[in-house]
C-alpha cells in the first residue's frame, strides 16, 4: 500500500449496516499491511461532533476512505465544516463492495474510469 496517501477506515460501530465480515476483512488487511491509517469508530458520530480530526484529514491531500456511500461520506465531511477536496479522494463503500475490492482500492486507489 502507498505511504503518501492517508487512509481512513470507519468501523460504523453504532449501526450494523456494514456486514461484519466486510469490516473484519478490511480491518485485518489494513492492520497487517504496515501502512499508516486512521481507524474511527463511527464517521457519523465524528461529523456530528465536528471532530477536528476530520478537518485535518480533509486538508491533508490525497485520502482513501473505507466507509459507506460516497454521497453520504462527502456530505458528512461537509457537515463537520471539513469539506473534502474535489480531487484526490477515493471512497469505498463497505455496504456494497466486496472486501477484496475495498482492500485493493485502499491499496491502489480507484481509477477515474471506475469512479462513480
Amino acid at each position: 500500500m502507498s505511504n503518501d496517501t492517508r487512509i481512513l477506515y470507519c468501523h460504523c460501530v453504532y449501526a450494523k449496516v456494514i456486514p461484519d465480515e466486510t469490516r473484519r476483512a478490511v480491518l485485518a488487511e489494513l492492520s497487517a499491511s504496515g501502512v499508516a491509517f486512521d481507524a474511527v469508530a463511527d464517521l457519523c458520530e465524528m461529523s456530528a461532533r465536528k471532530d477536528p480530526a476530520l478537518k485535518r484529514l480533509a486538508g491533508s491531500g490525497a485520502v482513501r476512505i473505507a466507509a459507506c456511500f460516497p454521497r453520504a461520506v462527502q456530505w458528512l465531511f461537509h457537515a463537520a465544516d471539513a469539506p473534502l477536496p474535489e480531487t484526490g479522494v477515493d471512497v469505498f463503500n463497505m455496504r456494497d463492495e466486496a472486501p477484496a475490492d475495498v482492500v485493493a482500492g485502499l491499496s491502489e486507489g480507484r481509477t477515474s474510469e471506475a469512479r462513480s
Binding site: H11, V13, S31, A36, D38, A39, P52, A53
Partner: peptide
Amino acid sequence: RFETLVALLEDGHQVTRPAAGTAVAAAD
C-alpha cells in the same frame, strides 16, 4: 494488533496506526 484494534473501535475510540517502524508525531 487486529483484536486490539477491534476492541478499541467497538468501544468507540479512534485509533491511529503510524506506519510500522516509524516514530510517532502529533497529528494535531
